[in-house]
């Protein structure tokens, strides 16, 4: 043995780190990178031209509207979640330890409940025989049920509901790191309560706002169940359109194209929000 064993041990030791990460890397490569890569590649492999699939896709008014709608819904969801989330996060960050614990549990719970269940909740509320319609009829405010589902408002409510917890948790995370004495310092120097928010809380909370916005924006761009159940055929988004092309009309060429558009939009919004974060972020922090 001797020298031979030592070299062999050394070789194994040198390879050990890579052997450890190999199985997971292979799984991601073979089952995610290759399939998704082939989807991307196929979308550009029309014999009539590299962008032929895209030319065809964007030639349709309907498709253009779906792209715009998806973008708009993601944007509006992010904006509303940001505004509403700030109030809830402020409340949570400023509560005593017991209340804080309960409120965080209440925010996490919907996050761990399935998307189907959470969207179904809104169907129960907004449906034709739903709670809202029944209440309005009982109060005598309306005679016949309103159609509250399958419109953009319903999709928006469902989306905000879906992603609000992520925003709240991101904001609570950043609000809790702000030194309470900074508020006191600003007040003692003459800042009104709103001034403290504008000059201290807001700029210091920006990193959390960006993280939350990235999660919510990319998430709502990709979500399938909520627009499908609350928006139906009338409120197609990229995700529901992809599903329809792939499963119902078996138009895999179009599905490839939509999939690529979704990936590009996700990547672009990540880059854009990242750049925004860089520009807005408070400087000079280690």
């Amino acid at each position: 043995m001797g020298a031979d064993t030592i070299t062999r041990t050394n070789r194994v030791t040198a390879l050990a780190p890579w052997l450890l990460v190999l199985p997971a890397t292979m799984a991601v490569f073979a089952l995610l990178a290759v399939p998704v890569g082939s989807t991307l590649a196929e979308s550009f492999s029309n014999p009539l031209g590299v962008f032929e699939n895209y030319r065809r896709f964007f030639a349709s008014d309907y498709n253009r509207m779906v792209v715009l709608r998806s973008f708009w819904i993601a944007f509006a969801t992010t904006a509303i979640a940001l505004a509403a989330g700030f109030f809830a996060a402020y409340l949570i960050a400023g509560s005593g330890p017991r209340t804080k614990r309960i409120l965080i549990l209440l925010s996490v719970f919907p996050l761990l409940t399935g998307v189907v269940v959470r969207s179904f909740g809104w169907m129960v509320i907004l449906g034709r025989n739903g709670i809202l319609n029944n209440a309005l009829i009982e109060l005598g405010l309306i005679n016949a049920p309103l159609s509250l589902l399958f419109n953009q408002g319903a999709v928006l409510v469902g989306m905000v509901y879906l992603f609000l917890p992520l925003m709240i948790l991101s904001l609570v995370g950043v609000l809790e790191t702000i030194d309470q004495d900074l508020y006191s310092a600003a007040e003692s120097l003459g800042s009104s309560p709103f001034g403290v928010f504008r000059q201290v809380t807001f700029p210091l909370a920006l990193p959390g706002m960006v993280v939350g916005s990235i999660l919510v924006f990319t998430g709502s761009l990709a979500t399938f169940v909520t627009p499908r159940l609350l928006g139906g055929e009338r409120q197609m988004t990229l995700a529901t359109l992809l599903h329809e092309k792939a499963i119902i009309s078996f138009d895999w060429e179009a599905a490839n194209t939509i999939a690529t558009i979704m990936i590009v939009l996700t990547a672009l919004s990540l880059v854009a929000l990242g750049m925004l974060a860089k520009r807005l972020s408070p400087k000079g922090r280690a």
Binding site: S184, A185, L204, P282, G284
Partner: peptide, 15 residues
Amino acid sequence: RGIGIVFQNYALFPH
């Protein structure tokens, strides 16, 4: 109140 305060941890605005 217009009182000047020096805080224990200084409470300088990091941004």
